[in-house]
Structure formats: C-alpha cells, structure tokens
Design a protein around this nucleic acid. Structure first.
Lengths: 117, 117
DNA sequence: GAAATAATTTGCTATATCGTTATATAGCGA
DNA sequence: TCGCTATATAACGATATAGCAAATTATTTC
C-alpha cells in the first residue's frame, strides 16, 4: 500500500482557492447524481435531465460548472451533447468518500449493537 | 496499482447528501488552510488562529464544522483545545487534488510554450 | 427560410454560508 | 468567589448559489 502522503507543504492562497473550487464542484447532491450517472457511461444532456428528475436548465447549469472544473467533457453529435467523465480522479474521489462513509456507518452500527447486546 | 473503482452503483438521495456534505467541508479555502496546518502536526485553536490570520470566532466555527464532518479531532489539555486530523482520508484527498492541479498546470504551461515555440 | 428540437443563458427568489462583533461558557489561579 | 484566559456560540449583514421560468442560441429537417 503506497502510504506516504508527501511532506505536507504550506499552500498558497491561490492554491487553496483552486483546491476549494474543485471540491466545491463535488459538494452538491445534484452534481454528484449527474456524475454518478456518468460513471455508468456516457449520457446526453436530455438523458441526464430525465434520469436526474431535475429541470433541463438546472442540469445544464450544473454540467457547465462540472465542465469548468474539468470533471466532465462534452462531445457534440448533431443536436445533442454527449457528456462523459473527463477526469478519472472524479471516480477515485467519490469511491474513496463512499467507502469511508460506509465504514463509518458500519462502525456506528457495530458499536450500537455492542452497546445494546 | 489498485485501479478498479467498483462497478459504480446508483446512489440513494441520502447517500448523495452525505457525500456532498463531506466534500463541502473541503470546499472553503479557510478550512483547507486549517487542515493544511494540521497536516503538519497538532495545533491548539489559538495557534490556528494566529497561523491562519483569521479571527478566533471564524476559526472556531470552521473547526466545529470539520469536527462534525469527522475530519478533525480535538483533545482538551487544561484550557486549550488541541486539534488534529482525525481521518487520514483528508490527507489523501487533498494530496490527490493538489497533484492533479499541478499536473494540469504543467500541461497548460507545456502547451503554452509549445504554442509559442 | 421557417419550424422543430436540444441545450445554454438570463432574471429572479429563496436559502445557505462566510466573516464580524458581541456575548457566553469552561478551566485555572489568587 | 473573582478575575483571567482559551474557546464556543449567537446575532447580523453581505455575498453566493440552487432551482424555476422565460428568452436565446445552435442545428437539423422540411
């Protein structure tokens, strides 16, 4: 297991802003839903609208933010725009977060049953 | 390299909200600055206030959010509260994001010099 | 060119959140 | 108990953003 996170240097203000902006892109449930759909394969904007249950304008706005963050790419095919995950880091980050949450919940459940047993 | 992100299942609304909340904790420069300081070792709240250059109330509020997100832990020592990173995932996520940003910037710089050369 | 379709952009309202100021709580010493 | 110090909390104004509705921009088809 490659462990060592590098020596933790001091980050500049602009670096902090950039990192924060990236994480902010992942900080809204609707955007995560769109990413989750895209993790299962390419989708047109219309498909995302239908699958997400949100409005077209709303989906479009979220997609444009995800595009600016470099997380989603778009390919035009005639009238429709086909979206896809442009950065595999998205998958990794989400997977890691999901795993961690699952672990925490299992821990919580375990300690609860232990407390009751 | 362990690659395979698991098969990308459909996430529930509550799961999406939980994940979003975690990422939101990482989506503010000041919180990232506090985490960055804590990555270099334990700090008291007062030390964080001084090092961050923000107000005590502000730092305290951000720390409490980070605590709720399970990212920061606190140990009381007399009057002072000593803070530390409670979840190594924080280091990993931030490192990954930093690396990715550095890569992107280097790419951009390269393509720029190529365009000018 | 006109109509139709897919998507983006614009205005708007409601809500959330950052940072500040002022106040409250908790632990320690006289 | 009374201050003093280290944090936490409350209240507030300013800004950002999610979601909705309407207008706008492409692109295809007739």
């Amino acid at each position: 297991m490659k462990k060592s996170t590098s020596p933790a240097k001091q980050l500049s203000d602009t670096a902090l802003e950039l990192i924060a902006t990236r994480f902010r892109a992942l900080s809204e449930p609707m955007r995560l839903r769109l990413l989750n759909l895209l993790m299962q394969g390419e989708h047109s904007v219309g498909q995302l609208v239908e699958a997400s249950g949100s409005s077209q304008a709303n989906v479009s706005k979220h997609l444009s933010l995800l595009r600016e963050a470099g997380m989603v790419g778009v390919r035009k095919e005639g009238l429709t725009s086909i979206c896809f995950i442009a950065d595999p880091l998205v998958n990794e980050l989400c997977d890691m977060m999901c795993c961690r949450l699952r672990e925490e919940m299992e821990d919580k459940a375990r300690s609860l049953t232990a407390g009751l047993g």
